[in-house]
């Protein structure tokens, strides 16, 4: 802490000196144009809720960057309620302090489409993050869920190995969310290429750990020889892992899931063997992509709604074997950092 403060003080001092001293870099038109385009701009993030690792991670990285270039960063927390999210967006568009960039984490394919169109009409750039929607946003930043599903399936096949029962169980999210639907499609694509592997059951968890546990328990009873289970989200995969523990099949069933790469949620669980493999999103890089496209859009001068960029984040299935110290980001550390300010 003390070190940090000293560093910051030093940095400030340096900046002041740099500002005061006549600088030959003043000739570079870049910083001035950059500041002119970005200064005072507003960025708003409307995730599904602020209460989970991904949203908190994004908010952290975005806030740091946006405030650094003199913008205002705000979040809205609909707490998983779609109507509340819709209203938050509506209010934001109609308010005096209309954001220049709206980053939306869509709950499903449809609900916000019309509002996003309205936002663009009002002159606000719309960024979709993580969940795709049936709307041509200015940019989409997030996972290619289809690809992600393929990675999961490949990890599961690898986890099972050649001499296994080759039975795979899926614990899906629900039948409405695009991330769940596309993941499933991706998994199926891979499994088509491996006809010897079969999906024996594919219940839904409704993103709830208790439900995940119950359905997994039943699945394991019906098919005790399952070699791998793919749970569609680390938020409820704890339930599936509990069921595996209950059935005393730890180590025998290879649990694959996906998540935001948070340390406690993913890496720690890989270390203790709860998960066999996690397809992790590199959150810092994803946030970096968002920052870059925001900066680009604000300087581009093109009207909102004219560009349609897709930036898919690099995904990688991580197992205990290839775990590195920097494989995960630590939410606790970010929070501590935020609290220290």
């Amino acid at each position: 802490m003390k070190l940090l403060r000293t560093l910051m003080a030093a940095a400030t001092a340096l900046a002041v000196t740099a500002f005061v001293a006549p600088s030959f870099a003043a000739d570079d038109p870049g910083p001035a144009a950059y500041a002119k385009a970005l200064n005072g701009k507003r960025v708003m993030l409307v995730p599904l809720a602020m209460g989970f690792d991904l949203a908190q991670g994004w908010a952290h990285y975005l806030k740091k960057e946006v405030e650094a270039w003199g913008g205002t960063f705000e979040t809205r927390d609909p707490n998983w309620v779609v109507d509340a999210g819709a209203q938050a967006i509506t209010d934001a568009i109609a308010s005096d302090t209309r954001p220049d960039v709206l980053i939306i984490h869509a709950p499903d394919l449809n609900s916000y489409s019309k509002l996003m169109k309205k936002a663009q009409a009002a002159g606000t750039y719309v960024l979709l993050v993580d969940n795709p929607a049936n709307f041509p946003a200015d940019a989409f930043v997030g996972s290619d869920w289809d690809k992600l599903g393929q990675l999961e399936a490949e990890a599961a096949i690898k986890g099972c190995g050649e001499n296994s029962s080759k039975k795979i169980g899926l614990v899906q999210g629900d039948q409405a969310n695009s991330s769940s639907l596309y993941q499933y499609a991706g998994i199926m694509k891979v499994l088509e290429k491996h006809p010897d592997f079969q999906v024996v059951a594919k219940p839904d968890s409704n993103w709830d750990a208790t439900t995940s546990r119950n359905v997994t328990t039943t699945m394991l009873q019906q098919h005790p020889d399952i070699c791998s289970i793919i749970d569609f989200w680390d938020g409820d995969a704890t339930g599936a892992s509990a069921a595996i523990r209950d059935a005393k099949l730890d180590g025998k069933v290879f649990l694959v899931t996906t998540g935001g790469g948070e340390k406690a949620a993913d890496c720690d669980k890989l270390v203790d063997g709860t998960y066999g493999a996690v397809v992790m999103t590199d959150l810092a890089r994803q946030s970096g992509d968002m920052n870059a496209i925001i900066k680009f859009l604000l300087q581009s001068g093109q009207p909102a709604g004219t560009s349609h960029t897709y930036i898919y984040t690099l995904e990688k299935a991580t197992t205990k074997a290839d775990l590195k110290p920097d494989s995960c980001w630590d939410l606790k550390a970010l929070q501590a950092e935020a609290a220290a300010k």
Partner: peptide, 16 residues
């Protein structure tokens, strides 16, 4: 008991 079996507790259960 819920926390014991899941090794965590998810408060979203309140809205379920």
């Amino acid at each position: 008991l819920t926390a014991a079996s899941l090794h965590s507790i998810n408060t979203r259960i309140v809205n379920s």
